[in-house]
Design a protein around this nucleic acid. Structure first.
Lengths: 218, 218
DNA sequence: CTCTGTGAAACCGTTCACAGCA
DNA sequence: TGCTGTGAACGGTTTCACAGAG
């Protein structure tokens, strides 16, 4: 079955919401309520959830616990993924400290950096290697996913090295740099700069449309 | 004129590419070449670019310099935006150091944190205030955009304070927390956790479809 | 002949409206 | 009656295919 990207994105949101409701001891919730809390239309919520079988009760709503484990199964990883992080600067460190990184879905099993202060040490419990060793270490440790938090100028060379390891399957990059990646690698990007530019662009548009013709910004 | 979000996203990419081509001294480029470098269909490139008037030359392609300034005008800000950053942890610091933050489009004019080590000091040349002062300082300094890099638990209270300033127009949040924001504020989110979950989900899907039925992952 | 610009078609995700079940 | 599940309609973006300019 094919699932669309926006659907997966919302499923993750539903899951988070269900997890927090579960903690609060809430038992039942309707698509309307889910929608209101997440800013999503109720019909959208129902469609997303019905995608994977009839999980709600008509006339009642969704049972929080049941929905929670249900989505958990949909999103579940077949195993714990082996992950490495390249670039242990501020961004890399922020990632390591991120709540999401205490996940049962993956382990960060190697770090890479060029800073001699960091290479050879353990950082937050993980071995840090020199970036020249990406290919070797990734293969040895069977790393499947690379998180790329290096400066734009180093992005392509890191990727080139990483793809030499046959174990690599996916890259999540936090760099604006355009990088070339073979088809067999799944590549995602989080581009902060683009998001910011978009925000500014649509702020500008809003302002333009709010102003009566002839009015000026002071 | 209404421009779609995916179009804006691609325009930003085109702009980057043109800027780097300009530096390399390249004069002319075709929609096909742009598309190949960015992983976008040529027809999509042409449609995006034709949106704002005939900028290319038939039978030839696009003049790099001309296209560059053309997109620059489309994306241009009406003025320099006044920006503040809440949360000067690793992520906040990474943002401050990001190349995008040496932009002529905006100035980071206030920082907020709760750490007494930071409050009252200048960090990277910008005054850091206590988070309790968000509303006051934002209004005084006429801050229009807030970058939210605080822990999930602090997100809502920061937003609540920030929206009390009538100067606020947009928020870019780097938190997975669900926050409630009034309609007048443009809200964008960058959710690293969601992106990572998506990557893992589609990696799983790929693996499933690659395996012949009955085959198992070892 | 080449490569752009663009109307038309195809495609995809969202929303609607209501049938179906508790 | 209340709320889910879902086929059909809708709206918007992408892709196609070709006319048109250099």
């Amino acid at each position: 079955m094919k699932v669309a990207e926006p659907t997966v994105e919302r499923l993750i949101q539903y899951y988070r919401l269900m997890a927090s409701m579960k903690e609060e001891g809430r038992k039942v919730v309707s698509s309307l309520q889910i929608g209101e809390m997440l800013g999503i239309k109720a019909s959208q919520v129902r469609k997303d959830l019905s995608y994977f079988g009839e999980i709600g009760k008509r006339g009642v709503g969704y049972h929080v616990n049941r929905l929670c484990t249900h989505i958990e199964n949909i999103l579940a990883s077949p195993r714990v993924w082996h992950v490495a992080l390249a670039g242990v600067g501020n961004l890399g460190t922020a990632l390591m400290g991120h709540a999401a990184f205490q996940s049962y879905k993956f382990n960060v099993e190697a770090l890479f950096d060029v800073d001699p202060e960091k290479v050879g040490k353990k950082i937050m419990g993980v071995d840090c290697f020199h970036s020249d060793e990406i290919a070797r270490v990734m293969e040895e440790r069977n790393i499947e996913v690379l998180l790329l938090a290096v400066p734009a100028s180093a992005a392509q060379s890191c990727v080139d090295q990483a793809v030499r390891s046959p174990t690599l399957k996916g890259i999540l990059a936090f760099t604006p740099a355009t990088v070339i990646v073979p088809d067999r690698i799944l590549f995602y990007r989080v581009d902060i700069f683009v998001e910011l530019e978009k925000l500014l662009f649509f702020l500008k548009e809003r302002e333009k449309n709010t102003l009566k013709p002839g009015e000026k910004i002071v």
